[in-house]
Amino acid sequence: MALTVLMLMRVRNLFAVIVLFGIYSFLMATVLVALDAVDVAMTEAAVGAGVSTVLLLGALHLCKSREAKPAHRPWLPLAVALSTGLVLVYGAMGLPDFADPLSPIHAHVVPRYLQNEVQVPNVVTAVLASFRGYDTLGETTVVFTAGAGIIALLRRRKKVENDRKDRV
């Protein structure tokens, strides 16, 4: 996975970047299966590797497929990114250990979720649709807004094209 990301940084052909991003998404889905998050892994494989790749390829079809060479070496961004990383590693040292059963994340509401109150054996579905239904409502709102924005952006383009045709 690290290798894929490093290649993503170097490669300038945008088609290769998009294919690498698809590979990266599948690897991330595999890692998520290893972390017991099967629902998330399925969504990541379908949405991250499938839909995102199709969207990126569609956008690439409408744009140029080569990235220009940067005018100067990226020392400043590298320094910013690395210092952010150092601060985050320092902060991560204060977090609970990996797979620590006493960490606060396992202590609050989760034992109640696992009692099967709503008679749905898949707890993720139960929490998503029942306990935290408002989250899903908010998500739908975001997706709707994004869809409306995309339609607004691309429809305006069609109108401009029509105007151009009228003038010719």
Binding site: D36, T43, V110, V124, D135
Partner: peptide, 11 residues
Amino acid sequence: SNPLPHVLILT
């Protein structure tokens, strides 16, 4: 494993 983060990340 803890289901709550899975739900948040699905969203």
